[in-house]
Design a protein around this nucleic acid. Structure first.
Length: 844
RNA sequence: GCGGACGUGGCGGAACCGGUAGACGCGGGGGACUUAAAAUCCCUUGGGCAUUGCCCGUGUGGGUUCGAGUCCCACCGUCCGCACCA
């Protein structure tokens, strides 16, 4: 009937439609639109050089949602950019002698071309890269605003310092106490660092989690744990005959009468001071610091202590004196760095008390035991009545907590307090490739913010990476400036911002990008919050917590009106693949082979090069080191963008891992052709009605829409297959032609190139601008239903009847069934349960 | 240790609020077309008895119910996150 060719050729069609979308600026978001708005966002990539398959999955999901929302008549903002600052660029500079900027910008160009080959409906006019002054200059302005509001401060802080590379290392970059690159022993150094006051927002960030209904429970729980709120009593245990004392934080003030010692951290000031004159203590402290910090080491680490010989008074009974130990299990950076030990009701304290033969007194009854004597080696941490605690006896744990806190506050030796595990965010990095922190150090005026008129503070391009250390410190002129306040010679701050700052507000810049300020408040109000954010679970805490904090901070200082940046969050699974390896006989280590080097022979596999077998390993995340990767460019070239996109959506639920398989992608490519052939059968002139097909079509349109909205792409895909089969089997009719056209619209968000190519023959304009098919609500409900007939809960027969048949009729029909009568076998019918339009259960 | 998620055919997975378990895809088996192959199309595919019906079956063991993959209790296993957090 038309000019459609036998096969769909992605090699020609993909590029053609990508150019047309671009020329017509189909996916440009209009700030002035009065349609309902959808901001669909995927986590922007780091420009490492190549797009990997995980990006393809992530961006395909977002793209389907964005295209679907457009079909539903929404004004969609679907932007893309680059998280472009960071260490890999500096490493490339050191290893290959290239400039980090050149390396990064080349990578961006390559990756952008790769993304375009996938046909994503992105508004490229809003593209941004965090490494460009047009972006980071505004970030500097925001940083100054936060500083003015008292949310930025400087303090001395310990960092991991690599003495060879002369740089600060992140914790992840310290391996067995050595720098990952230099191999040098890492030192703890005290440096003045810039901090953001995220702890000011601890309670807000915690409470805000309960409003994020569109977020996975898992991520909310992770953030809750990270913030780590605990409530209790902060109080002083005075040294005997002294005004001085040790401050202690406890969540169990109810167990105070069970106290038998006070323990302080190795780096507690009291311990440090004493160590200067007591060499044994100094040695013990050194020993404490040696232990590893990995989970396994902590698990097995023995509780150890050093008796200082000091005594403190029990706050509730001055005459009761407790010994003070330095203990290896007390942490300086949580609470006050000191605890009181109540061995009967805390496992660590119990282990410690048994080892040093300290008293163990039961003060919470487990309903069975009330005696002070506590013979068990397992601490009791459950609920119960307070015992052996004088005036507290008989109280519940909660009552006792409140009573002790009230007494402490009344008597002035303590107060109720809330502790958070969350620490302020240290954002200083002694790195070149990051946003310069916009401050000037002046001998006379101290720390002086760079005046906004002088922003951006631009990174110098002429830097040298051949010598270790921060090139900004060595640059001949860059750091030398006059103080903006007094005009005397001063120096610039040479630290740059943690790259997590860059990604904490990029979504705002996507929504609004004026030249003279970071964003426009009204435009933010129009687009934010992001309707759907999609990315990897690895960002559950850091990025997502920082972005929430940054948004709330900007809201508090009056720059924007939203509190939470992401209304809904979706964390997608990884793309996995089996591994192929052989053991290298020389060292016993496996050698891995890429899928392209291997041929599958049924259950086993051989190396193409020598036709000898290779071991097939577990299905795991694609990684370069295991060589179980597929390159997006290769598979796009081989199968076309639509087949690759379809594969990314098929089979596995999007939150779970997706196993890559050759057979799977081939199946997808076959389906592309199958649809193409079906589209070729479209006949606008066909007549006649096919009620069953009409019904199926409308039901699937409706269900697929719901699936896409809930990101259940695998379910939408299954339904599309179903409609395809039904349409193929149907005889020509107007209904069949309508079904073909509908099918095309259903797959348009998923296989946009195929859809455009076919639409050119049967529709008007671009399918990218077409509307989602409408459904007749009357057709959504069947007029005939299949009713299951059970006898005592077991299926015996099914009958097809008109929908809405009265229960009495259903019962009559059920009993009329031969199969049912045989199953009843003459027994009297005691009861019949009827679920209208679904089932009849006969109890005989 | 604490917290979270999960466990269904050979594989990926469906199954609304407790109501016909295994949709859809992959793989397998059989067939058609073809000189042949590719491509395509059709049939079939949980297990076991059997001769057209029956039994078993959603990690294991209990329970609630007319009826449980779904709810409750206990256990086993896998994955993820956090952790001497007072």
């Amino acid at each position: 009937m038309n000019a459609m060719t036998e096969r769909f050729e992605p090699s020609g069609a993909d590029g053609k439609w990508q150019r047309i979308w671009e020329e017509r600026q189909c996916f440009r978001a209009d700030d002035a639109s009065d349609k309902p708005r959808s901001f669909v966002l995927e986590m922007f990539p780091y420009p490492s050089g190549r797009i990997h398959i995980g990006h393809v999955r992530n961006y395909t999901m977002g793209d389907v949602l964005a295209r679907y929302k457009r079909m539903q008549g929404h004004e969609v903002l679907h932007p893309m950019g680059w998280d472009a600052f960071g260490m890999p660029a500096e490493n490339a500079a050191m290893e290959k002698g290239v400039h980090p900027g050149g390396w990064t910008r080349d990578n961006i160009a390559n990756m952008k071309a790769q993304l375009k080959r996938l046909g994503f409906a992105l508004d490229w006019s809003r593209e941004l890269a965090t490494c460009e002054p047009e972006y980071y200059g505004h970030e500097q302005a925001l940083f100054l605003d936060l500083y003015a509001a008292g949310l930025v401060y400087r303090k001395e802080s310990a960092v991991n310092w690599d003495p060879v590379d002369m740089t600060v290392l992140a914790n992840e970059q310290v391996i067995d106490g050595r720098g990952w690159r230099s191999g040098a022993l890492v030192e703890k150094r005290k440096l003045s660092q810039w901090f953001l006051k995220i702890t000011d927002f601890a309670e807000e960030l915690l409470e805000g989690l309960s409003t994020l209904e569109g977020w996975p429970e898992k991520v909310r729980v992770m953030q809750e744990n990270w913030i780590g709120k605990s409530q209790g009593l902060r109080c002083t245990f005075r040294f005997v005959d002294s005004a001085e004392g040790i401050d202690v934080f406890t969540t169990r003030p109810d167990t105070m009468f069970g106290a038998s010692f006070v323990a302080i951290a190795a780096d507690h000031p009291v311990a440090q001071a004493m160590a200067e004159t007591v060499p044994e203590l100094a040695a013990f402290i050194a020993e404490c610091k040696q232990g590893g910090t990995t989970a396994a080491e902590l698990e097995t680490a023995e509780k150890k202590g050093f008796n200082t010989g000091l005594s403190v008074e029990h706050p509730l009974k001055k005459a009761w004196h407790l010994p003070v130990y330095v203990a290896n299990f007390v942490l300086m950076d949580y609470g006050t760095g000191a605890v009181f030990g109540c061995p009967a009701h805390d496992q660590r304290d119990l282990d410690f008390a048994r080892k040093y033969e300290l008293p163990v007194t039961r003060v919470v009854s487990d309903a069975e035991h009330t005696a002070a004597d506590f013979p068990s080696d397992e601490a009791y941490t459950g609920p119960g009545r307070i015992v052996n605690s004088e005036w507290m006896d008989g109280m519940s744990v909660a009552e006792a907590k409140a009573a002790v806190i009230a007494k402490a506050q009344q008597e002035g030796w303590g107060q109720g307090e809330t502790q958070y595990r969350l620490r302020d965010w240290g954002v200083s990095r002694q790195r070149y490739w990051g946003t310069p922190i916009p401050f000037i150090h002046c001998e006379h005026c101290g720390i002086v913010p760079v005046p906004k008129a002088q922003l951006p503070v631009v990174l110098p391009e002429d830097v040298d990476f051949q010598t270790p250390g921060n090139p900004l410190l060595r640059h001949p002129t860059w750091m030398h400036v006059d103080c903006p306040t007094c005009g005397k010679p001063s120096t610039r701050e040479t630290d740059t911002l943690d790259t997590f700052v860059d990604s904490s507000w990029y979504f705002l810049r996507f929504a609004s990008q004026p030249g003279d300020k970071p964003f426009d408040r009204e435009a933010i109000a129009k687009w934010l919050p992001v309707e759907q954010y999609i990315g990897g679970i690895e960002h559950a805490i850091l990025h997502l917590l920082y972005a929430r904090f940054w948004t709330r901070a900007l809201q508090r200082i009056g720059l924007i009106d939203v509190k939470e940046p992401f209304a809904s969050l979706f964390t997608q699974g990884m793309v996995t693949h089996e591994t192929y390896s052989r053991i290298d006989p020389s060292n016993g280590q496996p050698i891995y082979f890429a899928p392209a080097e291997v041929a599958k022979r049924g259950e086993s596999a051989v190396l193409v090069a020598d036709d000898a077998p290779v071991e097939i390993g577990r299905v795991i995340k694609m990684s370069k080191s295991k060589k179980n990767v597929v390159d997006p460019d290769d598979i796009i070239a081989q199968y076309g963008a639509d087949a690759v996109r379809w594969f990314m959506l098929s089979d596995s639920p999007p939150e779970r891992d997706l196993p890559w398989s050759e057979a799977g992608i081939e199946g997808c490519a076959r389906f592309v052709q199958r649809l193409w052939r079906l589209f070729g059968q479209y006949d606008a002139a066909a007549t006649g009605e096919d009620k069953a097909l009409d019904r199926k079509r409308d039901q699937i349109v409706h269900a697929a829409a719901q699936d896409i909205e809930s990101l259940g792409f695998n379910k939408a895909v299954a339904r599309i297959y179903e409609l395809t089969s039904a349409t193929e089997k149907a005889a020509p009719s107007a209904s069949r032609s309508a079904a073909i056209k509908t099918l095309l619209l259903l797959v348009a968000p998923m296989m946009p190139h195929l859809a455009e190519e076919a639409w050119a023959e049967m529709g008007e304009g671009l399918v990218a601008d077409a509307a989602w098919p409408t459904v007749d609500p009357a057709l959504l409900v069947d007029d005939e239903v299949t009713v299951a007939i059970q006898v005592k809960g077991k299926l015996r027969d099914t009958i097809t009847v008109a929908k809405g048949l009265p229960n009495a009729e259903l019962e009559k029909l059920a009993l009329a069934s031969d199969k049912v009568q045989r199953a009843i076998d003459g027994a009297p019918v005691r009861k019949m349960i009827v679920v209208p339009d679904r089932l009849v259960n006969i109890v005989a």
